[in-house]
Amino acid sequence: MFSIDFLVGFTIFMVALIAVASMVPGLLAGLQSSGIDYDAVAYRTGVILAEDPGWPVDPPWEAYDVNHKDEIERMGLAVSKDAPNILLSTKIEKFFNTSFFDPEDYRSKVIFGEIPYSYNITLRSLDGRYNHKVGQETPEGYGYGYIRRVVKIKEPSVAVIDEGFKNQYTITISPGDNSTTRTFTVRLDFSRLLNASIDPAYRIDPRTEPVNITITNFEAFLNGTASNATLKSVTFWLGSSSFPFPYDEDDTDYYTLRIDNNPDLYPPEPGVGVSSNISFVLKPAATSLFELGPTSILDIRFTFENADYPHTNITGIHYYDYNPKNVTRPALKPAVLEVAIW
Results as ranks from 00 to 15, higher is better:
208 T>V: 14
287 T>A: 10
114 E>V: 13
141 G>T: 10
251 D>G: 00
67 N>P: 01
334 P>G: 08
278 I>K: 02
296 S>R: 09
47 V>C: 00
233 S>P: 00
55 W>R: 04
99 S>M: 05
47 V>F: 02
263 P>A: 10
162 D>N: 15
234 V>D: 01
238 L>T: 04
324 P>T: 15
240 S>R: 08
312 T>W: 03
14 M>S: 12
42 A>N: 00
176 G>L: 15
183 T>D: 14
230 T>W: 15
143 G>D: 07
294 P>H: 08
284 P>R: 03
94 K>W: 03
38 Y>A: 10
19 A>M: 09
339 V>Y: 06
126 L>P: 00
103 P>S: 05
59 P>M: 07
277 N>D: 14
183 T>K: 13
259 I>E: 04
296 S>N: 05
213 I>E: 04
30 G>T: 11
310 P>R: 12
85 N>M: 12
80 S>W: 02
205 D>A: 08
84 P>N: 00
125 S>Q: 09
333 K>P: 01
187 R>L: 10
288 S>L: 01
53 P>A: 04
63 A>M: 03
80 S>K: 01
71 E>H: 10
236 F>G: 00
57 V>I: 10
91 K>S: 07
141 G>Q: 09
267 P>I: 04
257 L>E: 02
59 P>A: 09
171 I>D: 13
301 R>V: 13
253 D>W: 14
80 S>V: 01
231 L>V: 02
181 T>L: 15
19 A>K: 00
194 L>I: 12
41 V>K: 14
333 K>M: 11
81 K>C: 00
81 K>S: 11
73 E>R: 06
324 P>V: 14
254 Y>N: 03
178 N>K: 13
175 P>A: 11
232 K>P: 02
263 P>E: 13
39 D>G: 14
249 E>L: 08
56 P>V: 02
151 V>D: 01
6 F>I: 07
59 P>E: 08
194 L>F: 10
22 S>N: 11
233 S>V: 05
224 G>Y: 09
227 S>M: 10
340 A>G: 09
47 V>Y: 02
143 G>L: 05
150 V>C: 05
133 K>V: 12
199 D>Q: 14
10 F>K: 07
112 F>E: 02
161 I>G: 09
103 P>F: 06
227 S>G: 11
203 R>T: 13
47 V>Q: 02
269 E>D: 12
134 V>M: 03
298 L>E: 05
105 D>E: 04
75 M>Q: 04
147 I>M: 11
277 N>A: 13
109 K>D: 01
11 T>L: 15
42 A>Y: 00
137 E>S: 11
186 V>S: 06
223 N>R: 06
30 G>M: 07
295 T>M: 11
274 V>C: 05
42 A>G: 00
199 D>K: 14
112 F>A: 02
200 P>E: 06
47 V>S: 01
166 K>D: 08
223 N>S: 13
107 R>V: 06
